[in-house]
């Protein structure tokens, strides 16, 4: 009968709870107050330590994930890993073109992981954007392809778009961007970039599209269908366009660009959209469906092109 816990006059406790179930005593202060405070501080410290451990652990996981991208896969007996066919050296070092050469586009075909690619490298030409009317007889153009997408419901250009310093639309529905400011072309992926403001301020151009490759790493995109794919890419400062000669998914196309060694790439309108390139001998390499241009088809007002002259 004497083993009931002592209680002080400034304490209260609920009956019916044994000491094993927990000390349910509440006090206005004093020694037990210090004990509770100590437990509380210890609990907070434990939570903080666990939180920090989790944080640094997650950081290390990220590092390992990045490493996993870089490190080569272990060879498999039944599925030996084949190196991508068509290395960068085969097409990239095709020779420095003389500035005296007339503007043209170097056209070359290669095969990366069974995906046939056509590479268009403009020489002595400047990139710009053009909206609405495209003169298919314009001989100053050495490469042209559709650039930004147009919304099917209202005909507006998807994402931010700047032509010669004039902002036509704003928005970040697609994270990839391509900008030309002061003659320098920037390709990348960002939710916000001051290149838009720079393009407006300095009379440049800017458009947004699906990002395909960012810093040499594949970027996944939502559309899963297969189609003819096009992109504008940058590799060690050189800008060029790539087109698949077969219908491919976004993923496979982006992977082929990664295997090609591309640093950054954003999508261009693919499928049957029309365009052409003029090679060094003046031959015209057309792609897409030309007939709407010949038959007087009325294109959406905001149809736009990436043009090299």
């Amino acid at each position: 009968m004497n083993d009931v816990q002592e209680i002080r006059d400034d304490e209260i406790r609920v009956l019916g709870i044994t000491a094993d179930e927990g000390d349910d005593t509440f006090q206005s202060g004093g020694r037990r107050g210090c004990t509770w405070m100590s437990l509380l501080v210890a609990a907070v410290v434990c939570v903080a330590v666990l939180g920090m451990a989790w944080f640094f652990d997650s950081q290390s996981v990220d590092v390992h994930a990045v490493d996993a991208i870089v490190v080569e896969a272990e060879p498999s007996f039944f599925e030996p890993e084949a190196a991508p066919v068509g290395s960068r050296e085969e097409w990239y070092a095709s020779g420095i073109k003389s500035l005296a050469d007339k503007p043209h586009t170097e056209v070359m075909d290669t095969m990366i992981n069974d995906i046939p690619l056509r590479i268009f490298i403009p020489h002595n030409a400047v990139m710009s954007l053009q909206r609405d009317y495209l003169d298919i007889e314009d001989t100053t153009i050495v490469y042209v392809a559709q650039a930004a997408d147009i919304r099917a419901d209202n005909g507006e250009i998807v994402g931010a778009f700047v032509i010669k310093g004039e902002p036509l639309t704003q928005g970040v529905s697609k994270l990839g961007y391509c900008a030309s400011v002061n003659g320098e072309i920037h390709i990348g992926m960002a939710k916000s970039t001051d290149l838009f403001e720079q393009a407006v301020r300095m009379g440049g151009c800017f458009f947004r599209q699906y990002p395909l490759v960012h810093n040499g790493t594949l970027v996944e995109n939502e559309p899963k269908g297969k189609s003819i794919r096009r992109s504008v890419c940058k590799l060690r400062g050189q800008v060029f366009m790539v087109e698949t000669l077969s219908r491919e998914s976004f993923h496979d196309f982006a992977q082929s660009l990664v295997d090609l060694g591309v640093d950054d790439a954003v999508y261009l309108v693919g499928s049957y959209s029309y365009g052409w390139a003029i090679d060094s001998e003046g031959r015209r390499h057309e792609f897409g469906n030309k007939s709407p241009y010949l038959n007087g088809y009325t294109f959406p007002e905001n149809i736009n092109y990436i043009v090299w002259r």
Binding site: I7, R8, D9, D10, E11, I12, R13, V14, L15, G16, I17, T18
Partner: peptide
Amino acid sequence: SDQLGAEGNIFIRIGK
């Protein structure tokens, strides 16, 4: 506490 167990929690001991 012995007789009521958990049902004894309607009682509160306040001080001595």
